[in-house]
Structures are given as C-alpha cells and as structure tokens.
C-alpha cells in the first residue's frame, strides 16, 4: 500500500526516465511558441482572458527588464555635489534646474490658492429630470394624478425622516436605493474608510436634488469622521467633514467619496 511520500521514494529507488532533464529543457524552450500559438488561435472569451493575462505578464517582464537596465545606466547629474569647485562660467549650467523648480513652485502656489474653492470633481454631467424621476403610473387613482414621482437615483434620507401621507407625497425615495454609508478616501493619507453619511450639502445638478438628498457624482456630502480621530487647529475633535462623491452610485451600488481637506 503506497503511503506517505511514496512518489519521492519511488524516484529515489528507480530514478527518473533517462530523458527527463532534456524533456524539461525542451518544454521550457517550447513555451514561447506555445504562447504565440495560443495568441493566434484562441477565440472569444478565452482569447480575451488570454490577452489580458499575457498583457499583465508582459508589463511585469518589462518592469523587471527596466530595473535591471537602470542598474547599469549612469545618471547625468551626480547625486552629491562634486568636491572640486567649478569655474564661474560653468556655474550657470545648473541654473535651468533651479529655475524650473522655482516656476513649478509658483504654479503650485497658484493652484493651491484656487484649490481653496475647488473640489476634486469640478465638472459633472447634467442629469435631466426624466432620468432622475419616474412618473408613478400604478394604481387607479395614481394614474390620473401624474404629479407623483419616484426618484430613480440613490438618495440619502435622514434618520428622523417619516414619509408624508400618500395623498401628499410628491417624491418617493425607494427604500432599496437609500444609502447610509459612504466609502471615504482621505486623499493625503491614502486610506479609505467606510463612514456614515450625515447630510447632503450640495448637489451640483439642482437645489431640489440637494433637498431630496440625491447622491450623484460630484455631490458634496457631510460624513462622520469621528472614527478617524482628526483634530482641528484648536485641538477639538472633528466630527463632521465634507466629502465629494466620485462615482456614479446608481451604477456601482456603493457611494465612494473623497474627503475635502
């Protein structure tokens, strides 16, 4: 009865077949041909999958090659200032470098100034009312009314909200499309945390959507950042912080936002 490491034992006792090493070498040598054949022959989904896999492999290969190459390449500027002093007429040569650094610094400053009033997503696609609302047609009486609307986008509804009586309810926000939490990224720390939404501050599409709490791409929301433990300049713990939604929530089934800092 074969038990435990019987395969290794067998090889130990009887050895491998005589052309084992050669076969192995040949198989490796053949791999390129096989890959090429596959790339030419495969169809449809398999071709897609294969191409994707190959693409990733190639990227990886190129990266490693570059790494190896860089080891041998000499960079133009010496990393340390040379010990022997340069003549005056040659000192100018380094100036373009500094000038470039200066200009970029200025540019950055300007950008920062503007950044006070800017948000990560300054422009959004307009959403028509027909897309946002669906007219409710069900039921005998409702069909006649024609003023009842269902919001077809995800919404945020406060915890203390109660629906109005059916007769007076103009906008219905379906339970299935209500969100309470958002995945918020801190842009500087580069971490993403799931935080509860406190309120919808501004929907760029229309003030009405802000009122309704519609969550579309570019909407500014307030999130509860108490978990992050952020502190103000005065030393108080920050509770609510604004964030901008960066994805189309209705397509993704989740709310992704970036914290405005």
């Amino acid at each position: 009865m074969p038990q435990n490491e019987y395969i290794e034992r067998w090889t130990k006792q009887h050895g491998r077949r005589l052309d084992h090493e050669e076969r192995k070498r040949k198989r490796i040598a053949r791999e390129g041909h096989k890959a090429s054949k596959n790339a030419q022959k495969l169809h449809g989904l398999r071709a897609k999958l294969y191409a994707k896999k190959r693409h990733a492999e190639k990227i990886q290969m190129k990266k490693t090659i570059r790494q190896h190459e860089q080891r041998n390449v000499k960079t133009d500027g010496p990393s340390e200032p040379s010990s022997n002093p340069l003549p005056a007429y040659l000192l100018d040569r380094t100036q373009p470098n500094t000038a470039k650094a200066l200009s970029s610094q200025i540019k950055q400053k300007r950008a920062e100034k503007a950044a006070k009033f800017s948000v990560p997503l300054p422009k959004v696609r307009g959403i028509a009312e027909e897309e946002m609302f669906k007219v409710v047609k069900t039921g005998k009486k409702t069909a006649k009314k024609g003023w009842k609307r269902v919001v077809t986008k995800p919404t945020f509804v406060g915890a203390d909200f109660t629906r109005r009586p059916v007769k007076y309810e103009r906008f219905i926000r379906p339970m299935g499309l209500r969100y309470k939490k958002a995945n918020v990224t801190h842009p500087e720390l580069g971490v993403t945390v799931q935080l509860p939404i406190l309120a919808v501050k501004k929907n760029p599409q229309s003030p009405m959507y802000t009122q309704l709490g519609v969550l579309t791409k570019g909407t500014i929301i307030e999130v509860n950042v108490s978990e992050l433990g952020m502190v103000t300049a005065g030393g108080k713990v920050v509770w609510g912080r604004w964030a901008q939604i960066t994805n189309n929530c209705e397509n993704d089934g989740c709310v992704n936002a970036v914290l405005l800092v």
């Binding site: 897309e131 379906p174 299935g176 499309l177 209705e250 397509n251």
Partner: peptide, 11 residues
C-alpha cells in the same frame, strides 16, 4: 430599481 440596460450591466 435599475432604469436602463447600461445601469443593469454596470450593477
């Protein structure tokens, strides 16, 4: 709740 083929597909 999806309204279009695109939305369904994305979801």
């Amino acid at each position: 709740y999806a309204q279009s083929l695109f939305q369904c597909k994305q979801l």
